[in-house]
Design a protein around this nucleic acid. Structure first.
Lengths: 268, 268
DNA sequence: CGTTATGTTGAGCTCCCTCAAGGTTGGTGG
DNA sequence: CCACCAACCTTGAGGGAGCTCAACATAACG
């Protein structure tokens, strides 16, 4: 439960810094509709124009602020959270590479929650003017962004269902399956596992569990031979069984391709 | 926990049926930006073109379906829900008069959850073509709809926070405060109370509580002199105290006007 | 006027929280 | 290189909020 509210200590980088070959966002949007070369070029330009490096624990936007820029995660993880009245932090969403952070740029006067870097990260920063010009010029990509936000809403609903209606083991397992599926979609996880740049405590904050119980639950999953979570890494010991325990049904992720979306290969 | 999946038994009404003087949606969008006469006329036409009457318990759209129409609630309440693996129903959202049900019309292939009428209701049905033409012709109203969906996303996050991080009394109180605020915004509640066309069980499904515990909790709130919930009606006995118990902060509703948004008048 | 959904109340149990005490890891400075 | 410190991880014991199961009361509806 860190309440660090330091300065945004963000380092503006020269825009030369390697426009990632094909960005995770591009990869994700391909799930919605395949992009022609003009479109993927435009997207690359949009994301490459202004890139920030954010240190772990630093806020991207804070509750109460008026959002001025949209952020797209290039590397690293962020989360959206609120502090409940009981003092506990509820993580409302994880923002992984390829995710858009606030679509609220144009329309909301005040952020209702805070977005913070969970690890060192690189983000594309897009201001209103740039976004506006972009969506006007590329209506299909604009639709793609709209689709992205509908997907995020669907994930949000799943989180409510998960945290309100299942036990600790299922909750953790299900969240990990989701993260795996989303990371696989942008090429950052395999069926074996993925890097997990967050603490057990943060995992607990996302699953609405205390750090202690999160720890016990992870031990149980390990002892059951399902998965092993160590500092910084998730390793699947039995993906299909994990998915089964979690009751993981990737429908809510709205991916196009049926394959390669979960730690449980459909061919097994 | 009703699992009725009957035919949509919907009755198409002649379009003459009284274009409601100023629709709840129009009233809500005024919170975002005031509409000129052309715009409010266009909105009225859009909502009046095709109106359906739905009986209580009937589905509007079901999980797995491909959505073909967007629905706007004119009268009555609907809810979006999913059945959890433990067999319990989790209500994910309430759709009150003025609310848009699926913005996913264009972009999602499959509904991830089911939407059902909780009471007898009247809805405007808008197909892709009509919506597409409308948003092209009235970009400001299109933005308004976009704003509406961002508001819904914010409410969704609040539900996660509420159901995951607070006790039974706070949960119920907070939900009731939200409903009151949203209904006040469309002129369907006063500071004294509002009609509640749903069962205690449904209230519990929204708060992730069993019907029994919901009942006990309502009794406690009544005995504490905060509010009285009877079949079909909520009466506030002490609005400000209720809001205090709930920790109700309407920021997440993103209403424009500060006043008239909660059972607790700011002037008290 | 019976039948069914909904509301009401009680007793026991379980899962997860709280509080408390180590143990481990990684980074920092002497 | 080692000592130290601050996060983070790990494990235990006890308590409480809400669930389960069970019975009954009351309202809605044909």
């Amino acid at each position: 439960m860190q309440h660090q509210s330091n300065q945004p200590l963000a380092i503006e980088q020269p825009e030369i810094s390697a426009p990632t070959a094909s960005s995770p966002l591009a990869r994700k949007l391909e799930q919605f509709a395949s992009l022609d070369s003009v479109e993927s070029g435009a997207l690359q330009d949009l994301l490459g124009a202004r890139v920030q490096t954010i240190a772990s624990g630093m806020p991207l936007v804070e509750r109460g602020e008026t959002p001025s820029d949209m952020h797209v995660v290039l590397e690293g993880w962020a989360c959206r959270y609120r502090i409940a009245r009981n003092g506990r932090r509820q993580i409302l969403a994880f923002h992984l590479p390829g995710d858009v952070c606030e679509s609220s740029v144009f329309l909301m006067r005040q952020m209702d929650s805070t977005i913070t870097a969970l690890s060192r990260m690189r983000v594309a920063v897009i201001d209103r003017a740039a976004l506006s010009a972009f969506t006007r010029a590329h209506p299909r990509l604009a639709q793609g962004l709209w689709w992205e936000s509908l997907g995020a809403a669907s994930v949000q609903r799943e989180w409510l269902l998960r945290n309100a209606q299942s036990g600790a083991r299922e909750r953790v397992a299900s969240l990990v399956c989701e993260l795996a599926a989303r990371l696989i979609a942008v090429g950052q996880a395999t069926r074996d596992g993925f890097p997990l740049p967050i603490t057990q405590s943060a995992l607990g904050d996302a699953c609405s569990m205390t750090p202690e119980h999160t720890n016990r639950t992870l031990r149980e999953l390990r002892e059951a031979g399902l998965m092993t979570v160590t500092r910084g890494h998730v390793k699947f010991d039995d993906g299909p069984a994990l998915c089964r325990l979690a009751g993981f049904d990737p429908l809510y992720l709205h991916f196009r391709g049926e394959e390669a979306v979960s730690p449980a290969p459909s061919t097994v």
